Amino acid sequence: MAGHSKWANIKHKKAAVDKKRGKIWTKLIREITVSAREGKTADPNAHPRLRLAVDKALGANMPKDTIEKACKRGAGELGAENYSEVTYEGYGPGGIAILVETTTDNINRTVAEIRHAFSKHGGNLGTSGSVAFMFQNLGILNFAPGADEEAIMEVTLEAGADDVIAAEDGSIEVLTTPANFGEVQNALVAAGFNPDDAEVTMRADNLSAVDLETAEKLIKLVDALEDLDDVQAVFTNAEWPDAMLDDEED
């Protein structure tokens, strides 16, 4: 089916990640460790979430021995890491809903740092359930303009994908449940289609438009949250102004 382009948003996200390359390794090591613990294995091929975390680490140029140690540590082969996964909810400037996923070994420290970031940048930390209902947990695989829509649709729908969306610019987005994400990704790779971007993420059901001034304030809050070592990901229901996305592409 047809849809609006997400490609500008993807490039915007990648640019933000590149600027924080120094911090990304710490976050990825935690994600690998927690994923290996969840799957009770150090083998990325045996657990889709661990495989995704390892792929991201390789994409961030993390040394293979560092990745292997994180896998083994999570699986309990090198001593256990006592990390907890906690999601915080709140509101940013303009009443924008925000989800903050964390991996922490000290919940008291983490909640204090997150509350401070919200307060400093015009937001409010909410209670559990205050905004989570506005988001869906989805597997998303993206292809740049020029990919073969019909072939990708045939492979992914047969493998259990929920939808295939073709944007006006020719980019393609494949949507799956988190449970089917690994199987769909494997089917695509086996058929010779390597996604340009693939992740299990939270997506807002409905976006809320913000003006440029509010967007700039919101970006400062999101940046402050993402700069915290315990924060793995930040999601909002903001519909960013075209002017902001255009600036990122220039």
Results as ranks from 00 to 15, higher is better:
80 A>I: 06
153 M>F: 12
56 K>L: 06
47 H>N: 12
178 P>W: 06
8 A>L: 09
52 L>N: 11
84 S>G: 05
108 N>L: 13
53 A>R: 04
161 A>D: 01
163 D>V: 01
236 T>A: 08
196 D>Y: 02
220 K>A: 14
157 L>H: 02
147 A>P: 04
21 R>T: 14
211 D>T: 05
52 L>C: 03
203 R>I: 13
18 D>F: 14
21 R>G: 09
79 G>S: 06
186 N>H: 10
98 I>L: 08
229 D>P: 09
64 K>R: 15
239 E>D: 14
98 I>E: 04
36 A>S: 07
33 T>H: 00
169 D>Q: 06
212 L>G: 08
26 T>V: 15
143 F>V: 02
229 D>C: 03
217 K>G: 09
63 P>W: 13
93 P>F: 12
194 N>L: 14
152 I>Q: 01
128 S>K: 14
46 A>R: 11
63 P>N: 09
234 V>A: 02
77 E>S: 00
166 A>I: 14
49 R>N: 02
12 H>A: 11
24 I>E: 15
42 A>H: 13
187 A>C: 02
245 L>D: 07
246 D>V: 13
108 N>P: 08
235 F>I: 07
25 W>I: 15
101 E>R: 10
182 G>C: 03
236 T>H: 10
44 P>C: 02
105 D>H: 07
218 L>I: 10
123 G>H: 07
26 T>W: 09
202 M>L: 14
21 R>H: 11
83 Y>A: 01
3 G>V: 07
236 T>V: 07
63 P>C: 05
97 A>Q: 08
221 L>Q: 04
171 S>M: 00
203 R>Q: 11
87 T>P: 03
37 R>S: 09
231 V>C: 01
188 L>I: 00
58 L>H: 11
182 G>L: 05
119 S>N: 12
153 M>R: 13
50 L>E: 07
71 C>M: 10
30 R>G: 13
114 I>H: 09
160 G>I: 01
